[in-house]
Design a binder for these strands. Structure first.
Lengths: 239, 239
DNA sequence: CCCTTTTATAGTCACGAGGACTATAAAAGG
DNA sequence: CCTTTTATAGTCCTCGTGACTATAAAAGGG
């Protein structure tokens, strides 16, 4: 009840953890760092760090993201708070409450070790083995959140470079959801949603390989998707 | 990067704040407490309190919920984490990170002052004036979250007593969304969703007033709503 | 240079969800 | 007994969308 003066309170350490997701060659990848010291020395973990005294968790997350990815401007990147993780014992050394964030990157730069010496790598989502601390759960929660938000928001463009083809946009959905989508239907749906994407007027084209060159689009002003683009329901759903 | 040993870290106080929502006479209400001391003395605030050393934020939230509402068993109540609020200066006295939760109650008991002397009251959502701290924002976020979750989950039954009529269930949607719904269509949709509600076999009925008595239902085993029950889109949406 | 392969784009068909609406049933009140 | 009120049943039509076919425009191979 905010009667601060009447209760003793325990000091906590507050950290941020980042589930930084991207697409590399059509597959979902996550940015991981290797721990150099105990506990969980040698294990992979989500990047993160302490919240400094005069910054918010969002600010700390963006600062850590810049440090870990070596990206110059992280100001335009999609960063969204997931939730806080506060189980006692989630860090064996001290009482740590962590605020987890999900970040979405288009073209993934090779991470360069960051401020501390531990190495950072892009790891395919499915190969992100047992992580340190409770980071497996955080990563799974982030994946689920992103998958859900793809349905109702225009956030898929955050995975794409400034100009992209509809095929690339579709790959985002397929990689995150793990399902194949019908191309003509996907195209119809995306183009029918006003403000989702808008064609680049310069009739530009992008050739990645053999077929007919695809038209280029950029993200539109819309943020929500009405009606939503629902992922195909899983088979064997309990009645 | 969890290099705890290499960084100095500031100790934070960690609290929970609760947006406890319920329906009273068809209107959305929120549980508020009156602050007895500075800062914001005399202002209303969301109930909450410090997280104790050996409990998680969820546990702390449930404990506070029991204390504030005087409810005996809060084990079955819907409690969901909203997010963490960590802006520096959100509490003028110290660095406080708060983990906010949303709780949904069916029959609202009159709150009895709780453990500390400050009074607690159910306040109509629209009349929840300027609150202390950043609680206006937390409350708005909670409202938005609940409104969104009504679309895709079966959570509306958490507002209802163990047995309820479809009219009462519809009132939940109308109160949270602030829109009127067509009764036959709502009924068709709810009954067509397997596992959302199931009829009470004792052909029971409930008479609140004049008309034909309504059949009683109870919550079913389903948790998700596929396809979702979308709220009517707002007028004047930007294209 | 033709023909196949590959990818993008256009279009068709049918079913189902749901918005708008009407009709009937079962209670209370005057 | 008739009106009012609320619950429930059913109808019509439109739109979104899954499944599918067809055409266009490139590269590659003989």
């Amino acid at each position: 009840m905010h009667g601060y003066d009447k209760y003793a309170y325990e000091p906590f350490a507050v950290t941020v953890d980042l589930a930084v997701l991207t697409l590399r060659e059509g597959a979902l990848h996550v940015l991981l760092v290797e721990r150099g010291q105990e506990p969980y020395a040698g294990r992979w973990a989500l990047p993160g760090g302490f919240v400094q005294p005069e910054e918010s968790a969002e600010t700390a997350a963006r600062r850590e993201l810049a440090e870990e990815t070596g990206l110059a401007d992280v100001s335009g990147l999609h960063l969204e708070q997931l939730r806080a993780y506060s189980e006692p014992g989630r860090d064996p050394r001290m009482r740590v409450v962590s605020v987890a964030f999900t970040a979405l990157l288009p073209d993934p730069p090779e991470p360069h070790g960051g401020s501390d010496a531990a190495q950072a790598r892009w790891v395919p989502y499915d190969a992100a083995g047992p992580l340190a601390f409770d980071h497996d759960r955080i990563l799974a929660d982030a994946h689920e959140r992103v998958g859900a938000r793809l349905e109702y928001s225009c956030l898929a463009t955050a995975f794409c470079p400034p100009q992209f083809t509809l095929g690339e946009l579709q790959q985002v959905y397929e990689a995150v959801w793990g399902t194949a989508l019908d191309r003509p239907n996907f195209r119809r749906k995306v183009l029918a949603t006003p403000g989702f994407v808008e064609p680049v007027p310069g009739a530009a084209r992008l050739t990645g390989g053999r077929g007919k060159p695809a038209a280029l689009y950029r993200a539109g002003p819309a943020t929500a998707l009405h009606p939503p683009l629902l992922r195909p329901p899983r088979e064997g759903r309990p009645a």
